[in-house]
Nucleic acid binder design. Structure first.
Lengths: 198, 198
DNA sequence: TGACAAACAGAACGCTCGTTCTGTAGATTA
DNA sequence: TAATCTACAGAACGAGCGTTCTGTTTGTCA
């Protein structure tokens, strides 16, 4: 066995730790980890932690405290073309790993979330209660979905051009086109959407 | 001064702790907190922590470890998004989230992402290319949107009951209802949706 | 069947943790 | 102006932390 052979690390251990973290939002101590993993020796916990650290799932703060590593929050991405004969994505080849935040948010400082009210954009697949990922910027291109400020309220619409002026078009025939008098104030451009259904 | 008078707690302390947590994803030790807050006595850190705990910003795990409390992540969306002096009914309904992952993923070990192919669920606001957040489990309730395995491919449909058997109903009249011969293999239940549009 | 490595168990140890107690300067109240 | 309260500082202390070292068991391979 060569020196470069990657050490074994138990995916079940990682899952239990991730679930613990999801519940408590902290990494537990070695003794708690031992209980969590069904191990009775802290020395072995130490070794496992070392391997997870090596693999990028755990890390240390400048103060030598154990913390989640870069890969800790990655999720499995299963492609629908995957042969699902054995639905165990852990050992399947056709998956990629991403974090949802990284996927949606490219410029954190300019990005915010806006909850959707009403169904005026239903034909664009934007439902009431959805969270819109919005990149804040004062202007946008025609055809983009924008969050504009009309009568002191946020409104989500397509930005279109009409007779030299900008208008806001809903994606629902039951709603009228908004033709703002004066300047159109744009809050930002839609960059994504998040919906929780359970 | 009455006994019910709420203790003072320095909002600057909370902010510094939140910033630290945002960077490292863990709550530091009392000595690190002392440095972070510019305090030189751990006893005073202890007292401040007690007050934050009383106010619901900090909490303890069953293992007596300090962890973020229920209100720790609470931050008005308006704080980061609203323009000066603007009333904001559209976003005054809720609070910001730590991460989108957190909002969507409740059981990390059982959660994976599946990319949507086709437009058979378009009337449910599920578009081609969307990422479905799926909680893996072998069964589901009637009416839920499930990811099933049909002919070695993932398919997203409503789970419905028909003449004693289960069927998969699309949310698009152009597609037929799928009546699986034999057992219906369910990969998981839809828990959320992620779409990137830019 | 013997050699060897991996996967644990267990104890020992120094050090850091959070708690608790005492002390004090400044502001507030009576 | 005396008493009181708040916001800290500092030291002492026991308990628990993570590291390290030394076994022991189990699986693998030749």
């Amino acid at each position: 066995m060569s020196l470069n052979t990657p050490r074994q690390l138990d995916p079940a251990y990682l899952e239990k730790l991730q679930d613990y973290y999801a519940e408590h939002k902290v990494i537990p101590s070695y003794s708690v980890l031992a209980t969590l993993w069904g191990i009775s020796a802290k020395s072995w916990v130490s070794e496992c932690v070392r391997r997870f650290e090596e693999a990028g799932y755990l890390d240390w703060t400048p103060d030598k405290q154990l913390k989640p590593g870069g890969r800790f929050f990655e999720r499995r991405l299963a492609d629908s073309t995957v042969q699902a004969g054995l639905p165990n994505p852990a050992i399947s080849d056709g998956y990629d790993l991403v974090t949802i935040d990284d996927y949606l948010v490219r410029v954190p400082s300019r990005t915010s979330l806006v909850r959707v009210k009403g169904d005026s954009m239903i034909d664009a697949g934007i439902h009431e209660g959805d969270l819109l990922v919005v990149e804040q910027q004062p202007n946008a291109n025609v055809g983009e979905i924008v969050v504009a400020i009309v009568d002191n309220e946020f409104t989500v619409k397509y930005l279109e051009r009409e007779k030299g002026g900008f208008v806001l078009k809903p994606a629902n025939k039951a709603y009228p086109v908004i033709r703002p008098r004066g300047r159109l104030e744009i809050f930002g451009v839609m960059a994504g959407l998040v919906r929780r259904t359970r």
